[in-house]
Design a protein around this nucleic acid. Structure first.
Length: 579
RNA sequence: GCUCCCGUAGUUCAACGGAUAGAACACCAGCCUUCUAAGCUGGAUACGUAGGUUCGAUUCCUACCGGGGGCACCA
């Protein structure tokens, strides 16, 4: 699309003596019949003309190589692109993909994307699922644009929550010994119950609270008496997390742990206490956020333990030292927005080079719509449970299928359903998750997109069987026709034209997704592309068309398939050949 | 109390300050002897309220109403 805009601006600027930039062009709203439009408001202002009159003036230009028709509609100029020009731009080998890669940042600058961060000994819930799916997609988008990406994961394995879990385990000591030999699922289930018991009792029972706090001290102090139980159960959690990462197709190059940074975090805080960055207050050591329009936060509590905030200082130090990132993107829920503001401000003093390089990517709350299950009442929806439920649903739909690799297809389609459902909504937007409806398999859904790819591959496969010679000629389905040979031999069908136009938008869309760190742009684009393809598929037969038309359409659907697969990959979604 | 975010069809989500506010789900009516009907076509329904800035506001500003988050020793 950017190439098309450039061409248009060149042609129009020459013809009118006006300075029309590629950025002046916009895509028409859905209800307007045109390929591309030029609103004349800004331009008219610059030229001190009436926008409507200017539009009429511009619409007099006639250039059949770029556009075949043009008219003025009030202050807008609407263009209909020439078939040959549009076809060439849309189907060129690199075209839309190249536009997505930004030269300025293509110098292999390193960006760390830090996401997932579940805490050991605690449940892995659907919020974590959204976190990982989002973080992975952001990583892939930035990678595609040209950054070197470090996937990092910061996991909480010390702190009060561990104390609560260990306290719960001690109450269930007999079961703990027995369950050690059981399956991972059973051990995790046990751990979840132990944590819940500890957490609930902590709130209501003073004695238990005291004991949990003592356990917490022992964890920080690496007390021998709890090492076995701590290490064993920590390993269970990590084993379980690994399983989920694999299932979601995410790999981290660096796992950070709170246990490796807390000591240094305390050190740093004390060091900068001397330099007056921090301050003693009511027995604790705090950062006075109020000085900067923020709020104050505790870095070392009155017992002398570093809090989350102190640990994060040391984490940042380690991350910058180890990878020298241009930017660190922390994918963390939006409830921590104000927390990060304070942390980043404190970091500016402790680690000046971090300034403007730390970014909190806040994603919206995953809430539950249906009344029965509420996180409020303490019932957490587990991430794995959701994945399993969706797989069940897809299995039912595919019950009659006779595909050889049915299990694999079920898994991929299910993953697509969950990932798409979570990515199609703007990152910062809360999502109400309805267990029954949210993961749909039709309409605006992951499976719908996979269906397009499967349809295309099926057509191409049939073509290869029917005309093996033709398809063997070149690398592409239509026999490797080059761009210049693609002069339209026929008039494009309106569905073909819309599909071609949609294809040209890919590069700009990825750019936007990268800039805004929002995968939902891509989800939206792919849905539009899918819709355009389905209309084309409905209106234009491929294999039954005459030779030249067929070859052209094969090339077109091949390009749609590539674009769809690339886009889905950016969402972390794998495609299937048949479904 | 202070502060931040959010209010768009019945529901879940879209819309760089610009044309008739788009989809999807659900509902109704059609379309498979024709490349995968997980599809396509048609139909009804929406910018929380009141002001302001602007040629033009769902978008920016103010107030109000409604929902959610955060605000010291949790992560």
């Amino acid at each position: 699309m950017s190439a098309i805009k450039q061409q248009l601006s060149k042609v129009l600027s020459q013809a009118t003596n006006a300075d029309i930039s590629p950025d002046d062009f916009v895509l028409p709203p859905k209800n307007i019949d045109a390929d591309i439009c030029l609103p004349c408001f800004e331009l008219a202002k610059k030229m001190k003309k009436n926008p409507t009159e200017l539009a009429q003036e511009i619409a007099k230009i006639n250039d059949t190589t770029v556009f075949e028709r043009v008219n003025a509609a009030g202050p807008y100029v609407n263009f209909w692109l020439a078939d040959a020009f549009l076809t060439g731009e849309a189907l060129s080998e690199t075209g839309s993909f190249d536009a997505a890669q930004d030269d300025i940042i293509k110098k292999q600058k390193t960006v760390m994307v830090e996401f997932a961060h579940p805490n050991t000994h605690k449940a892995f819930h659907i919020g974590h699922l959204r976190n990982i799916i989002t973080g992975e997609s952001i990583s892939r988008i930035l990678e595609f644009i040209g950054y070197k990406i470090i996937r990092a994961n910061y996991q909480g394995d010390v702190g009060l929550h561990i104390g609560k879990a260990l306290w719960g385990i001690k109450q269930l000591a007999a079961e703990y010994e027995k369950i050690k030999k059981e399956s991972l699922d059973k051990r995790i289930n046990f751990l979840g119950r132990a944590y819940a018991l500890g957490g609930q009792t902590y709130e209501t029972n003073e004695q238990a609270k005291k004991e949990v706090n003592e356990l917490n001290e022992k964890i920080y102090g690496k007390d021998d008496s709890i090492q076995e139980i701590y290490e064993t159960t920590r390993a269970w959690s990590l084993e379980y997390f690994d399983k989920i990462y694999q299932r979601l197709n995410t790999k981290f190059v660096r796992l950070y742990f709170e246990s490796e940074v807390f000591a240094r975090g305390k050190e740093l805080t004390l060091e900068y206490l001397k330099k007056k960055v921090f301050k003693k207050s009511q027995g604790a050591i705090i950062f006075e956020g109020e000085k900067y329009g923020l709020h104050s936060r505790v870095f070392i509590n009155s017992i002398g333990f570093p809090t989350y905030e102190a640990k994060d200082l040391a984490l940042a130090e380690a991350q910058f030292k180890e990878f020298k990132p241009e930017r660190i993107i922390h994918v963390v829920g939006k409830e921590q927005t104000d927390y990060f503001k304070v942390l980043f401000k404190a970091l500016e003093f402790v680690l000046p080079k971090s300034k403007d390089k730390e970014k909190h990517l806040a994603y919206g709350w995953v809430s539950l719509k249906s009344g029965k299950m509420s996180s409020r009442t303490g019932q957490v929806v587990l991430g794995e449970w959701l994945l399993d439920e969706v797989e069940k649903k897809i299995s039912e739909i595919m019950f009659k299928s006779e595909l050889e690799n049915k299990d694999e297809v079920v898994k991929k389609v299910s993953a697509a359903a969950v990932k798409y459902a979570m990515l199609k909504i703007g990152v910062d937007h809360d999502m109400a998750f309805d267990i029954n409806e949210s993961v749909s398999v039709e309409g605006d859904s992951g499976p719908y997109l996979l269906y397009i790819v499967a349809r295309i591959k099926s057509v191409i496969a049939k073509h290869k069987i029917q005309s093996p010679k033709l398809s063997a000629q070149g690398g592409s389905a239509a026999g490797g026709k080059s761009k210049t040979n693609l002069k339209a031999f026929f008039v494009l069908h309106s569905s073909e034209k819309k599909l071609l136009l949609e294809l040209t938008g890919f590069g700009e869309m990825v750019q936007k997704a990268g800039q805004e760190l929002d995968p939902s742009c891509i989800a939206k684009y792919l849905l539009d592309l899918a819709h355009c393809f389905n209309n084309f598929y409905h209106d234009c037969p491929v294999l039954k068309a005459d030779d030249e038309v067929r070859n052209f359409r094969l090339l077109l659907i091949q390009k749609v398939c590539e674009t769809m697969e690339t886009g889905l990959t950016l969402l972390g979604i794998e495609t299937v050949d048949k479904m």
